[in-house]
Design a protein around this nucleic acid. Sequence first.
DNA 1: GTCTATAGACGGATAGAC
DNA 2: GTCTATCCGTCTATAGAC
Lengths: 209, 209
Amino acid sequence: MKSDEKLGSTKEQILEAALDLFSVRGFEATSISQIADAVGIRKASLYSHFASKQEILDTLVEVVTKEYDSHSIFGKVKAETPVLPGAENGIDVDALVAQVIGQIRYSLHDPVISKVRKMLMIEQFQNEQLAGIQTKQSYTDITRFFTIIFSRMKEAGLVRDVDPEIMAVHFSTPISVWMNLCDREPDREEEVMALIDKHIKQFYSLYFL
Amino acid sequence: MKSDEKLGSTKEQILEAALDLFSVRGFEATSISQIADAVGIRKASLYSHFASKQEILDTLVEVVTKEYDSHSIFGKVKAETPVLPGAENGIDVDALVAQVIGQIRYSLHDPVISKVRKMLMIEQFQNEQLAGIQTKQSYTDITRFFTIIFSRMKEAGLVRDVDPEIMAVHFSTPISVWMNLCDREPDREEEVMALIDKHIKQFYSLYFL
DNA sequence: GTCTATAGACGGATAGAC
DNA sequence: GTCTATCCGTCTATAGAC
């Protein structure tokens, strides 16, 4: 292992630097020079790896979308997905809280996931493709995932007789809003985690039988 | 009334055009020329009204903040604010739904409010001042407002014995997420309104005695 | 207050040496 | 694959005529 440079080919370093900048400044407000500076090469050298600035974004979107499609559980849930493992005999709320908070902390601190989330947020009103991805990843897939889970739980007689989609929204949207708050003000993470704990426990006491 | 131009001084037209563009493209990605074109003057003429592009944003922020501070009910709620008028004898859910949906439709379609909301969303990771305003307007003030209302209702014995802050979050965050969805995909407004109706009714049945 | 013209920096992108 | 040099367009901002 060489110690002079971190890791990854120049092409990968360019993609990383681009995501760094796009996730804070946005695509248009980021220049090729800024990306090149971050990588440590001249801006002309960048064109040996990508034909244009647009191609950097396109590649980034492609990589990130594939990664999401192959690894996110939210995008892959099917109607035949069973109830959460171990939930058949009721829910251990503290274990659920710990699991959810673990996932959220991972998602908040993963250098790629967190930056993609920010980039989508910034570009959502300008770039139709990114708008579609944001809706899917931050709303549609998550809502569908929990709707299916809560439907199963309702059928199993674990939860009250309510609309599972609204129940899914009641579970996920506070977390969504709080994660956005953490992306904006990282210092408030612990405050948010305490709120998530309260939220899940209150959600449980309202919905579960 | 002259029919050749809409209304407002050139300075006001510049601010309007700037907000139009900042709310879609962002501050940095918007050029002085684009603003000038939208107003119908040369870019140099713009400097008769503002000393710099930054001053346009600063003025916009000042105007918009003052407007919010003087007109938004969310920012002005005090601990002594009484329960919602007429709520002492219980809530008319259909009336509540109609009132909330009316407010949301107004907020979604008001040309200034909706564009400010988008601009804050776009600039939140780059501009600390705008980040602070976004947290206040889209989270802190709204949460505090409903926390106080639900606290009063809890004291009045109208709602279950729960944490009023979490209750406020359960009420407001779905609406927040759905409004963002409408900002991104305006065609989904009616779908969202139907969900809001379901949400408020389910929220009521869960929380109210 | 608006215009034309221009300064000077920086944008994306290309050519060609090494 | 990276470099220097360069092209040409656009950027913010200013000067000065009208």
